[in-house]
Design a protein around this nucleic acid. Sequence first.
DNA 1: CGGTGTGAATCTATTCACAGCA
DNA 2: TGCTGTGAATAGATTCACACCG
Lengths: 202, 202
Amino acid sequence: MPGKTDPAQTRLTELLTLLPQLEEEEENLNSRLIGRYLGTSADSIRKDISRLDRGDRNGSYRADKLADDIRASLGLDREVRACLAGLGPLGLHLMEYFSESDDVALTAAFDGKLNRMERLDVPVKLYPAWEMEEIIPRLQIGLGIIATEPEEARKTYRRMVRGGIKAVLNLSGYYIPREKKGPAVKNVNIGAMLLELLCRLS
Amino acid sequence: MPGKTDPAQTRLTELLTLLPQLEEEEENLNSRLIGRYLGTSADSIRKDISRLDRGDRNGSYRADKLADDIRASLGLDREVRACLAGLGPLGLHLMEYFSESDDVALTAAFDGKLNRMERLDVPVKLYPAWEMEEIIPRLQIGLGIIATEPEEARKTYRRMVRGGIKAVLNLSGYYIPREKKGPAVKNVNIGAMLLELLCRLS
DNA sequence: CGGTGTGAATCTATTCACAGCA
DNA sequence: TGCTGTGAATAGATTCACACCG
């Protein structure tokens, strides 16, 4: 019952990230087309969008308006400050990735290996991992992204919790158990996703 | 209706990837505990496992037996050959990650930049991207993992399709639209996942 | 007791079907 | 005609409740 996963909300966040791409490569949008990109039925897309209650947009969808309406409906107005832990290959990838995001301001990055940090030329302020607890509240960071090795994920998580983080996106592959009174946690496991795909082959 | 996502199957694949971790850090397993790791109710976990129809295992769960039963039930017996496209930071991360997998044999990796490839010391045979179409059928590769830049994802996908790939896990951030008669596609977008988390903060 | 397994009840999501609009 | 919006119908998943086992 905890990590609630409302399918409509999931689709809408996907649609939001899909819209820029659609704007580039499609003339005009409709529910069937969007469904094809998102792997759902046109019906679901229509229902999701209609429930958005935007001032009566008539006829077909416009990417820019849709984006605004989705943001408004999901409460994605204010930008949230985030930090990233782990600067291996995955961390570096995410650093680039999120540097361009509108929804998240990547404000700090952490790693345990100092020498690794010194070499890096990146657009975000870097700190040693043990300063997390202090930096997170000071910079008012609400969201933590874990991209460490699995072995370090738990410790990293604890540091974030002690820093008062509100939500954690954990891409390390280690499963962080949910705890009452703890932050919202989303464990993403690429191996599991791959297995799910494999099931469809059988 | 296409990209069907059976929640029970999703949980079971997650559980399968979770089990090694549980084996390390928990004495004995029960549904509530598993639910805490997976962000679901104990009820769902019990139901999922009971439907596994294993020869009457009595009482509490054993990690090794569970893994076997889940594999059998999901048809994850035979190992599938996979290839990876894109050897930037994300690709390198995945290369390491999947090298250790039991379910997938990473058999080839591709990149468009030759100089990038020459520098790499990796445990998988590397090929230039334009050979995909030829290599995939020759090595009987069934699954493609896309870790390229978004701009190159579409072209990469087309090459995989022409090579006869059966399933695609696409981590580039670009959304590949589903096409009838095409392979199974799973688009994973980290930005969307992050947005979903942000929604929970509001 | 603290746990599992499982029908029955509930709650949620998807699909259907069609009216209404450009 | 081709698409959206939406109630009604269906299908599906989760939760409840309780019998049963070690």
